[in-house]
Design a protein around this nucleic acid. Structure first.
Lengths: 265, 265
DNA sequence: AATTGAGTTCCAAATAATGGAACACTGGCA
DNA sequence: TGCCAGTGTTCCATTATTTGGAACTCAATT
């Protein structure tokens, strides 16, 4: 669902809303605030139309105009997100288990869910240093080069998996990033067997992790948890050792969800 | 020039988008996921219309359907917010100064900006305990009962202030919450003179703070920073002492903005 | 089998969005 | 100064989307 590789068929059936969301995507994905003309070029729409659309987004607080008349993401988005996050049941249930895992290992622990082709990080419990909050939470990362992503993919039924893989476009973030659906699929099969996944510096050089899949009974959530850290500290041997506690924590989260959400949703 | 500024109710001129945002507001403000019928009652719209609107929001990922067919805030909101937050210039500039202030006092430090009648918290640097992230960030609080809020109001030109106060409705969160525009206005005048504001358990019992106003040259941002903590630990005497460091930190933030954003935006 | 409640689909009428063009504002630059 | 190019804003007939009432499905209850 991210702006990643959806080149061709992007015909969303959401009418006016869809067009506005494309604009929101443009502005929030930009590396700096955009001027009207920049957006005009990117969006490829008539000036008058674009102007009114942007006005509406401004008036709703979804976008803001900075001092130089450039368009930046609006703070209302923060407000929405804060509430969306605070009440998220999956996150609330997982939280204590993430903390336990962090205590046991001393490293950073993540919780993420699969949304479209991306992993969205729902929570993070950081090791030592005074957390730079939001640093990861809410971020969307590709599913094919993150531990949580590959763990999540291993939960998908064969058909959905093939469909999803077919739509992927592989960006080579590091030397070890997967470059094709074939190698990825092979690894995902392995992950499905063993019940845990590694990220061997596939998304970011020097960062690796071990992850385990987590899902809700009704499959509303398909995601995972991971222990992440610098490669120099986290040897493959150590990661392999941690596969067990990560899987145990994942199991406890799912058990808690069964209790809290009722057995037969 | 749209001179219809006296909107008694919320007659937003944002067409289709405005109607959809009302729905998003309903769902994100609810304490639990809402069923279709709940929203139907709250929104007061024809069934067919509401159904299509919700479908569009679902398809865009702004809302999600939980296992029981109830509507919950969508995770796409998190994705938008994460980017909006990460690139926010005001926050980036203020960040080191917030940390400094936290180091100097050992208490929690907040950064907030005024948006409409609310303060939206942009950042937080917490004292000791491993931060519960997002806990405050993104939250919208009333301007009339928070230190940052009152500090921000003290920056407004008289006319805007009167307009804003006229539109406020006062909720008594604690015994010391302002109950009328008159007493509030008196305090704001005082704050404007002295350059700092207190919150004496006005929003939450047992929590108080001292805050100083911060603004950007072009007045795009009007906000403040605060030192917050439990009343038993933060005596009025201590808060008064901290008024100076808070004002100094605020000054440094504004100086950095001048440097970074250029002198005459 | 009949009833109720919840959610979904349909389509003519009402409404809002579209897009081309004209209009303003600004800051060079000859 | 006057001209020009680049930017952003406004207008309005045309076009497409949204609206809303009603009919329909589905499942659980009586």
């Amino acid at each position: 669902m991210n702006s990643n590789g959806e080149g061709a068929a992007q015909a969303r059936e959401t009418g006016t809303l869809g067009k506005l969301m494309v604009l929101l995507d443009l502005v929030t994905h930009a590396h700096a605030p955009l001027r009207f003309t920049d957006i005009l070029a990117l969006a490829g729409q008539p000036r008058g139309t674009l102007h009114r659309q942007l006005s509406h987004l401004l008036e709703e607080g979804l976008l803001e105009l900075d001092g130089d008349g450039r368009y930046a993401p609006g703070l209302r988005l923060l407000d929405f997100a804060a509430r969306s996050w605070a009440r998220n049941e999956f996150r609330l249930i997982a939280e204590p288990h993430l903390s336990d895992l962090q205590q046991a290992t001393g490293e950073t622990v993540h919780l993420g869910v699969l949304r479209g082709q991306s992993i969205i990080y729902l929570d993070k419990v950081d090791g030592r240093q005074p957390v730079r909050m939001y640093s990861q939470i809410g971020n969307a990362s590709p599913c094919y080069c993150t531990g949580v992503g590959k763990a999540a993919l291993s939960l998908l039924p064969a058909e959905s998996l093939v469909d999803l893989l077919a739509g992927l476009s592989f960006t080579s973030f590091t030397a070890s990033t997967h470059r094709s659906a074939e190698t990825l699929l092979a690894e995902i099969r392995e992950i499905a067997d063993q019940g845990y996944a590694f990220d061997r510096e596939e998304h970011e050089a020097g960062i690796c992790c071990v992850a385990a899949p987590v899902w809700s009974q009704d499959r509303t959530f398909i995601g995972g948890i991971s222990i992440t850290g610098p490669a120099y500290r986290l040897s493959m041997e150590l990661l392999r050792q941690w596969a067990v506690p990560v899987q145990l924590a994942a199991g406890r989260i799912m058990e808690d969800m069964r209790i809290r959400l009722g057995p037969r949703r």
